[in-house]
Simulated scan of single mutants.
Amino acid sequence: MYAYVIRRLVEAALILLGVSFITFILLYLVPADPARQIAGRSATAQTVENIREQLGLNLPFYEQYWRYLVNLLQGDFGRSYLQKSEVGELIAARLPASLLLMVAAICTELVMGVMIGVIAAIKRDTPLDKGLMVFSFVGVSAPQFVVGILLLYVFAVQLQWFPIGGYGTFAHIVLPALTLGVLGTGWYSRMMRSSLIDVMTQDYIRTARAKGMPRMRVIFRHALPNAFLPIIAMIGIDIGFFMSGIVVVESVFGWPGIGQLAWQAIQRVDIPIIMGVTLVSACAIVLGNLVADLVAPFVDPRIKLK
């Protein structure tokens, strides 16, 4: 176990290094000039050049990247070009809101997806099963931006059950979590249905049924724990989808998380913030997959970590 964790952490460090390198290259090639944006349109060429020199933007690519890596290893994400604040402090202030939204969305999609998948598997090939699978297909296909706008219009504007945007109460988190959870609900329900149907054909399930054990007890005590294994693996992968989709959802609902921070930074070409949010997101994805791999053996002891 310890050797496996150490190996995965080393792999994670290499992945994060690769992410930082690729992101830095892409931002380096962006035609927009951060120095010009900081100086303003009316600034002279000399002023812009002075700012570029102060920020180190006049240095060769490899030198800029090396300086960034050295600072990063010391826990320094850099300083925002426009907000004049440390990037680490900006992310730390926004991260709790994003984590809260992520946890709420995962709980939403797990409850809805597993419930729909189990019902569809139990009622296999019935009109209810087909209807639930159509709902799942729509959930997987619907863009999060469209889902968010529809939920806002129906539940916030028309019915006035929830606030249009903001942060701070349970009511504020319902619609953003549901928007993020709709996509996951579609995937989880389809995965849960397929996995449960497959498990129900196993010999030990047939043996339990042959001994006269009630069908519901067989499903929930024996079949469901084993059918849940693919769901555990998907949770780790899901963190990556949340980190990409959370930018849109936070912008729609005015949620003060790192997604909104990243969107503002992209509009202003604030490179240190973009790099910081990208690395934090990549770190969350890597750790999410690692945790999912570590949890799986506790659910099914037959799984061995190598």
Score class of each variant (00 low, 15 high):
Met1Phe: 12
Ala3Lys: 14
Arg7Pro: 08
Ala13Cys: 14
Ile15Met: 14
Ile25Val: 13
Arg41Phe: 15
Arg41Val: 12
Thr44Gly: 14
Thr47Leu: 12
Thr47Asp: 13
Arg52Gly: 10
Asn58Met: 11
Tyr62Gly: 09
Tyr62Asp: 13
Asn71Cys: 05
Leu82Pro: 00
Pro96Thr: 08
Pro96Arg: 06
Pro96Ile: 06
Ser98Thr: 10
Leu101Ser: 09
Leu110Tyr: 01
Gly117Pro: 04
Ile119Ser: 00
Lys123His: 11
Asp129Thr: 03
Leu132His: 02
Ser136Thr: 01
Ser141Glu: 01
Gln144Ser: 12
Gly148Asn: 05
Ile149Met: 01
Leu152Ser: 04
Leu152Ile: 04
Gln158Asn: 14
Leu159Trp: 13
Trp161Ile: 00
Gly181Arg: 01
Gly181Asn: 03
Val182Ser: 05
Leu183Lys: 06
Gly186Trp: 01
Gly186Glu: 01
Gln202Arg: 03
Tyr204Thr: 00
Ala208Gly: 05
Arg209Gly: 00
Pro214Asp: 15
Pro214Cys: 12
Ile219Glu: 07
Phe220Ser: 08
Ala223Met: 00
Ala227Asn: 04
Pro230Ala: 11
Ala233Tyr: 13
Met234Pro: 01
Ile237Lys: 07
Phe242Gly: 03
Val247Thr: 02
Val248Phe: 12
Val249Gln: 08
Val249Phe: 05
Glu250Thr: 02
Val252His: 09
Trp255Asp: 12
Trp255Gln: 06
Leu261Val: 04
Ala262Asn: 10
Ile266Cys: 08
Gln267Val: 11
Asp270Arg: 06
Ile273Leu: 12
Ile274Asp: 05
Ser281Phe: 10
Ile285Thr: 00
Leu287His: 03
Leu287Thr: 05
Gly288Glu: 08
Asn289Val: 07
Phe298Val: 12
